[in-house]
Design a protein around this nucleic acid. Structure first.
Lengths: 204, 204
DNA sequence: CCATCAGGCTAATGATATTAGCTTTGTGGC
DNA sequence: GCCACAAAGCTAATATCATTAGCCTGATGG
């Protein structure tokens, strides 16, 4: 019996294929059994390369986060302000539509305590940091940046997530609706940059 | 052996308990086996009352959609314009935080073709319709209402979904960030109401 | 050339859903 | 009151998973 020549990376690659093949639910449908079958190997053999199904999902999340970071960086390089924000939002949505399963993986939250999840947390922080960097160009007061980042993430993620889940009935005009959202985000962040701290608490 | 006296409704009620007990992942963790155990009954017995696990999830979604509709209606009655929209957004978030598992069920998309899902589709349309009604008070042009509804849904759902999933690191100041989002939605919808059709297509 | 060990395997356990078919309990009609 | 029948349980069986334990072997480094 010849060796299959697997490796952690090879297993992750096969998992990605299965995730991609499954559409928006590809991540949820990911199964060690199917990965093993596609590798031509018995299921338990995978444990030589990967700790568990959950760990494999985490690996997929890492790849997806890195890809999203790269795509976001590429889309925003050389841009600033509204221009950059628009490009970022578009890149985000494009990635989600091109890789719905992987985008779902992006949403997996790392355990804040688990030491094994350090890499995961770092990868997540990188994407979020990128959003922060883009918003920095708006000249937001420091204590409002976090609100702006959250609002942008919420808007874009919410739209994409509803779109992928089939939450919008008519498939038509989705682009226009998304444009409306992005316009709103740009305007909202701009406002946030100008407005003084509303301060239920801190106030400089 | 005395009858357990189950019924479709009783099973759904137990399912709701399990969903509620499971936090944000309560819906995903819903299991016929556990429901049966809590009913004091063997698992296959449940099939006398419910078609499948998926069908039970659908029942949960129906309840959640109805509750969300009721809560939204209660929150917005007697209000209009920005006031109504703010109340709606708050009600939405409050419901999600009070019943994370049920809120996840709201996100289950009904099959657009399955005749069994007609009720599910109708319940979904009711909540969305309510959003439309609230936004109607902004005097949006007809062909922009759909964009506004989508933008509002995206923003609120995105925020709540990230919040529940633990996507925001610092738990503090979440309320302020949400307020910023709602402010932005109000401003955005208002703008949409004033702006002329940008029309990549139709243009009156 | 052999010892080690990484990378496979089979076997076993334990969830889970789901189907089939049997049994019993209530109940409605006579 | 009694009986037939449907509803509501049950057990048994199948199939899919994940996961653990323990064995076997091929590649590889000394």
């Amino acid at each position: 019996m010849p060796r299959a020549g697997l490796s952690r990376d090879a297993v992750v690659r096969l998992a990605l294929e299965q995730v991609d093949a499954g559409g928006p639910t590809g991540l949820a449908d990911l199964t060690l059994a199917k990965v093993a079958a596609s590798a031509g190997v018995a299921t338990p053999s995978l444990y030589k390369h990967v700790g568990s199904l959950a760990a494999l999902r985490r690996e997929v999340a890492l790849v997806a986060l890195d890809e999203l970071t790269t795509a976001s960086a590429a889309a925003t390089v050389g841009r600033a302000g509204p221009d950059a924000l628009r490009a970022l939002a578009r890149a985000w949505r494009d990635y989600a539509r091109a890789h719905p399963g992987r985008y779902a993986a992006v949403q997996l939250a790392p355990d804040p305590d688990a030491p094994d999840d350090a890499e995961h947390r770092a990868a997540g922080a990188r994407v979020v940091g990128l959003v922060g960097a883009v918003l920095h160009g708006f000249g937001l007061p420091d204590d409002r940046t976090i609100d702006a980042v959250r609002v942008v993430r919420a808007g874009v993620h919410g739209f994409v997530s509803l779109e992928l889940a089939g939450g919008f009935r008519l498939p038509e005009d989705l682009d226009r609706s998304f444009d409306a959202l992005v316009d709103m985000l740009v305007a909202g962040v701009t406002t946030l940059a100008d407005a003084p701290p509303p301060a239920p608490k801190e106030q400089s």
